[in-house]
Write a protein that binds this DNA or RNA. Structure first.
Lengths: 143, 143
DNA sequence: ACTTACTTGCAAACGATTTGCAATTGCATT
DNA sequence: AATGCAATTGCAAATCGTTTGCAAGTAAGT
């Protein structure tokens, strides 16, 4: 995350391996994703992309996001109310806390919660394939 | 849930109190909701409603659902992939486990998970306003 | 450089949901 | 029971986020 160039290179190689052509729009979108710390939606990515190459279309952004998703390079989140937002895959599993005032997303992980989820599911006669845990909250006015 | 008529009556009274007119379509939709054990989407409600009064429109179903939601009589859930699904409000808080093969919804409640969520949020400097916890799984082939 | 399949941009289609509008209806009032 | 008006309806058209058909453009193996 501190070295965008190295990150981007890996990304491209990873995709080439998956049989994906590296085109100009894709390179640009990948660059944006690898430099991004937040969870942008398609339109935000599109806006940033257009700034680098005005010929890029929103459809291409959507198509690329879908491609990256099926290849497993990114993850899509449909938080309440808004459009899908994306994040790079590859990190460890985590859940999200969404600031309902700013839309900011904070990632967190609780093994204890994960474990309890499994227990609950098993008790109901199910095995979990995946889950969605989103906390919607507001910042505490700190002391 | 065993006495639809009594349930429906309460429902109507509750709404009248909230200043909502009881119209024919609304009465029908309320009847459907109070007899329903599952988590139907707008289209499913519409289909059941049309069977009782063919003049009811899908827009009215949507408008009524929105109305009931703001009045607090029902709750809306946007499970992954599909349209919003609804359930009567009023019961205790619970989360959902969705059978990814059948779409069936199982309600559950875990105070331990709730508690951990609060702890996590607080540790991050937030207070939870609401949350969404959905487990997507498949039935265990029981012993 | 040549070819061919993969990608693109554009505009039109999409599914779920909402909305403008003119016609209808609940219900408080006579 | 008849009246009046605001609330509600059905319909069609609009909306939002996203996907798709198509003809033109391009990556990359030869």
């Amino acid at each position: 995350m501190t070295n965008p160039i190295a990150e981007k290179r890996d990304y491209e190689e990873e995709l080439r391996q998956a049989g994906v052509r590296i085109t100009r729009p894709r390179r640009i979108i990948l660059g944006i994703l690898s430099e991004t710390e937040d969870h942008p939606d398609a339109l935000a990515i599109f806006r940033r992309a257009v700034a680098l190459d005005s010929s890029i279309s929103l459809s291409t952004v959507y198509r690329t996001m879908k491609l990256l998703e099926t290849v497993g390079a990114i993850r899509r989140h449909a938080f309440e109310g808004g459009p899908s937002r994306f994040e790079q895959a590859g990190g460890a599993h985590h859940d999200h806390l969404i600031d309902i005032e700013t839309g900011d997303v904070v990632e967190f992980r609780s093994d204890r919660i994960e474990k309890l989820q499994d227990e609950v599911a098993r008790a109901l006669g199910y095995e979990i394939v995946h889950h969605r845990l989103e906390l919607y909250g507001r910042k505490l006015r700190s002391k």
